[in-house]
Write a protein that binds this DNA or RNA. Structure first.
Lengths: 335, 335
DNA sequence: GTGAAAGCGCTAACAC
DNA sequence: GTGTTAGCGCTTTCAC
């Protein structure tokens, strides 16, 4: 059996209350008592039991993070940012993978809730009925939505300026003279995807081009889905001369599709991607992208969560972080 | 206040003990009682409190994972594999980032332990004094070491056949006629790094080449460290004609260094990397690599942990998963 | 089969 | 400043 605070108190010759106060650093305790207690604790190798503490204090200093796929570098970076922010305040993060699946997301949120996390940040899966998230909010458990919004859930959210970012990307293409521009995106049920598609349309119209629905190709949550979607868009006689890929998996997919079709970038096909990863500067030509502040996103979510955990009140806040176009070589022209 | 099992029992007109038995599915409970209890629970929206349960049952169905850097795709994939394996058995994983830092690792392990995780998998940081891990083992908390061993800690481990994998990589190079072959590696305090360097030496000797210590360049845990180490190796008149990079960050670094020095791969410099990532087939030439079974590694760690959690006894087991050379274009010759 | 009661390790009133 | 006491929500003997 592990050593408890009772053992420490006994050894130090004080009550458990005094021992708790000395160890926990709250309430009053004389320096002498404090010293004796700390000493006994050290000697006995006392380790506080956070579970017992949580049961009474109703706080676990643990928060949950639910992402669609931790293997997606975007989420990994966000997770890292969140962990850093929370870590600094003594919180630990419980990670759950939802596989971009609504049902698994619900289960993950429930599992986290059962464990009494103090708060949660979730990247909502497409097609989820928002019940479990609304419940969270109703129960007063701080929730922050990351990267995506969900209708009917009144929670803080930390998002990217997707529409503007996508519009910048596509405007870059129209500025280069492209008129037939396609887009490869994940499901539009994902609000960030929908916003990027909207940005694409807006930039097209701004350039006097009427959006052609047949140039919008929708994939799924994997690189393979992206490749298939890109293939559908590119493997036809009237293929676009340029394509905007709305996330990093779609970018990989489009690159593979272009290669499969022997299309040379940028000569046969110009490409702008959303989300920047290391390898984009390793390929030839380096890929022009809209760079997202990935770590900041996680950190901002952490800050929002911490603020709520500290009791901040008031209406849900929506944070929008800017994305920035980085012109490299995949659209031709001079960077 | 949330609804407790007491509320459910009251509503169902039974004792808390019966309610607990009905809900928990253990012990005896008449079908009638069971029905009444489940019904009340549903109606009241009862959610079991895992914290309270853990306090008495001394099990949290939670395991900890400590990695050096969740942004490294290698660890992300392992995390995913572990989460999948644990998830299937109802466990949740608490993730902690140690930043490849021994002190932060110790703190992470302690934080996880305070939270009473049932077991832990850790990727030990270089230079850690193994005290906190040995303590874990001594306390009877199942531990599995992932990717790396640590002296003085008698725990299960799930590792890659690093020596053989590295030797295959370097033998491929010697087979192509290279005689001056360099290696860029992370710290040799990391056992997987040391093993890869050993494999490199072994293959050299097998080809009748005496290893030249000046061709071993040691980096650190980041891509930038890898680039700097590669630069030291390559930016000199007697530079090697081929280089083996011992992990994916080093591979990126070497590629950047080669580019900075205007060295063409494979003509001026042949390259084999350890660890395969998507982008290795996106660059030109595609990179010849030793592919690690990343997800399997995490899954195997999970299975080891689950076995111990189920009470499996006996000496520490060491699992070695094979790595496989994939010949692509970065060494010249015909794939 | 079911209930009463004890207690997991800790915190938090409330006396003294 | 310190001790006593009463739980936090749940599981688990042990009677009945």
């Amino acid at each position: 059996m592990a050593v408890t605070i009772r053992d420490v108190a006994l050894a130090a010759g004080v009550s458990t209350a005094t021992a708790a106060r000395a160890l926990g650093g709250y309430g009053h305790a004389s320096p002498a008592a404090r010293r004796k207690v700390t000493e006994s604790a050290r000697r006995l190798g006392y380790r506080p039991n956070a579970v017992a503490r949580a049961l009474v204090s109703r706080a676990t200093t643990t928060v949950g993070l639910v992402v669609g796929d931790i293997e997606n570098p975007f989420f990994a970076a966000a997770a890292r940012g969140l962990a850093d922010a929370m870590d600094a305040e003594g919180y630990t993060v419980l990670l759950a993978n939802a596989d971009e699946d609504a049902e698994r997301e619900r289960r993950a949120v429930d599992a986290l809730r059962a464990r009494q996390v103090d708060g949660m940040v979730v990247v909502p899966a497409p097609g989820a009925s928002p019940g479990h998230l609304a419940d969270l909010v109703a129960a007063g458990i701080p929730l922050v939505l990351l990267d995506r919004m969900v209708a009917g859930v009144d929670a803080d959210s930390v998002l990217v300026r997707n529409t503007a970012g996508a519009a910048d990307a596509v405007a870059h293409l129209t500025g280069l003279g492209h008129r037939r521009i396609g887009v490869v995106s994940d499901l539009p049920e994902i609000t960030s995807s929908a916003e990027r598609i909207a940005g694409y349309r807006r930039a097209l119209r701004a350039a006097g081009i009427e959006p052609d629905p047949s140039l919008v190709s929708i994939g799924g949550p994997t690189q393979a889905d992206g490749e298939a979607a890109a293939l559908r868009l590119l493997d036809r006689p009237d293929r676009p001369t340029a394509v905007f890929t709305a996330n990093n998996f779609m970018t990989v997919g489009a690159l593979r599709a272009a290669r499969a079709l022997h299309l040379r970038v940028p000569d046969d096909l110009a490409l702008v991607g959303f989300d920047d990863l290391d390898w984009t500067t390793l390929v030839e030509p380096p890929v022009t992208v809209v760079s997202q502040p990935v770590a900041e996103l996680g950190r901002a979510a952490g800050e929002r969560l911490l603020a709520r955990l500290r009791g901040e009140d008031g209406p849900a806040r929506r944070i929008r972080l800017p994305a920035r176009l980085i012109v490299r070589g995949s659209c031709g022209g001079r960077p």
